[in-house]
Design a protein around this nucleic acid. Structure first.
Lengths: 259, 259
DNA sequence: AACCAACGGTTCGAATAATGAGCCGATAAT
DNA sequence: ATTATCGGCTCATTATTCGAACCGTTGGTT
């Protein structure tokens, strides 16, 4: 791995539960040498990608990201576009809709929308990270990913987020081929208990999968009617999003099922 | 300069006018070797910090920033950031510094900092509300607000907080165009008597004005030297704050005056 | 007070990764 | 057909990065 990748991978250890990280912790998290981590953090700090908080000398994400995210959004108004579509989707289904993008071997939630119809709902947080093997979005993405990527993901240790998480690679592969048949992925309680979700992949201009749009509802509310509505709506929404973002369906994608 | 800094500095060449950059252009912009730039961009792309657009093969900022900016936002509240900057500003000027944000047709003070240098000082209270027509911060904001907003504010009854408050719309408009020229607003005794203040607007990611940072001093202490110091420092501080909060100066903003 | 562990940060020879001149095939303009 | 640029790639040279060990400090425990 190159030096730049090492530096950037340090940034991936920040999350909502761990917003600032000390040098020693970062050393442990990254598996790199302490001197190396220190030098990388120093360089990241010089460019405003991390900054040190006054006492304790821990590091946190820097202000540069606000600026660059604004520029990214100005160049590619993905978030704005998807929020609009997600609102429609959550309104049509009465449930929580979200869009997550593939980043490395995880999914990162870009946007989500709630429906005001029900008091109880599946809640999301900004930039939430989803596991590929534990979510319907993950299955949707994996089903249309290159085989070697799937191999890599499934050969790594698969964490059971709940008792219902599938951690057997063969079982997962069977699910993936079902997803390829129908063009839609389904998962019950794999990431959080009592959540039943459906997801459809979205693709970029090179016909590669870049993420998935999903609708998540409480298990208790899921019935045949709702399932039928969700499947129809999430498929249409995913197709819209792929098009709005300038993407194309891959040749193998089942258009009848998709539409 | 280290490799990581080189890679990160490449990202700085993206802006609104130049949202995507080809390899050769980036080579010229950065002054680095083409092979080096290519390798750095490839590594940045692997981590999602840049991505290649389908045709032309140009590079643009990647989706990773959306995620990291959301985390930064969650980790570092705006108030904390501005307090740090305001402390520096009050230390550099020896006077009271404050940041106020536009809320409706008033300004609401988000944060302020005192200097310990002088026994007498201009005092603030938390979440103090300032009138747009009676304060330097207000003039700074109005000067860079949309015309219809200015019309709305100036057509409403303008309260005279002191004998020195300007309540004549035409006179205020003249002041606003002076502010646009210089990039800094000045007001003597308009909100409280014996207070002389300077303010510079700050902007958000869409280049809209969101508030102003100001330094206020007792009239008795204001002299040519102090004015020069304040004008320099408050301009620099406002620029820093705009950047720290992820904003951009509007295209018409006089950068020479701003720096 | 003495001790100790953990912290952030630094040092320096050895190991590794970055560098850059030049080449390649593709594309597009002349 | 020629030429100029483009993005991308190779490889010997070289500069940078790595990492075990070492500081000085802090905070807790005995």
């Amino acid at each position: 791995m190159g030096t730049v990748s090492k530096a950037l991978s340090l940034l991936g250890h920040f999350n909502r539960a761990r917003p600032q990280i000390g040098l020693s912790d970062m050393t442990r998290l990254s598996g790199l040498n302490k001197a190396t981590v220190h030098r990388l953090l120093t360089e990241l700090a010089e460019q405003g990608f991390v900054e040190q908080v006054g006492s304790g000398r821990e590091y946190r994400l820097g202000p540069a990201f606000l600026r660059l995210a604004a520029l990214r959004e100005a160049a590619v108004p993905m978030r704005e576009v998807s929020l609009k579509v997600l609102h429609e989707l959550s309104a049509a289904t009465g449930e929580t809709a979200h869009l997550s993008l593939l980043q490395g071997d995880q999914l990162s939630t870009l946007a989500y929308a709630y429906s005001p119809v029900h008091g109880t709902r599946v809640t999301m947080e900004d930039a939430e990270v989803l596991n590929l093997h534990a979510t319907s979005s993950g299955l949707a993405v994996l089903a249309f990913s290159p085989p070697d990527f799937v191999d890599k993901v499934l050969s790594a240790p698969l964490v059971a987020k709940t008792p219902d998480t599938i951690t057997d690679p063969d079982q997962l592969r069977a699910r993936l081929s079902a997803v390829r048949e129908t063009g839609i992925a389904e998962y019950v309680g794999g990431f959080e208990e009592d959540v039943h979700s459906h997801a459809v992949p979205i693709f970029d201009a090179t016909q590669s999968v870049i993420g998935a749009v999903a609708v998540a509802a409480p298990v208790a509310r899921m019935n045949a009617d709702l399932i039928a509505t969700i499947r129809t709506e999430v498929k249409r929404c995913a197709l819209d999003l792929t098009r709005l973002l300038g993407g194309f369906l891959p040749d193998g994608f089942n258009r009848e099922n998709a539409a």
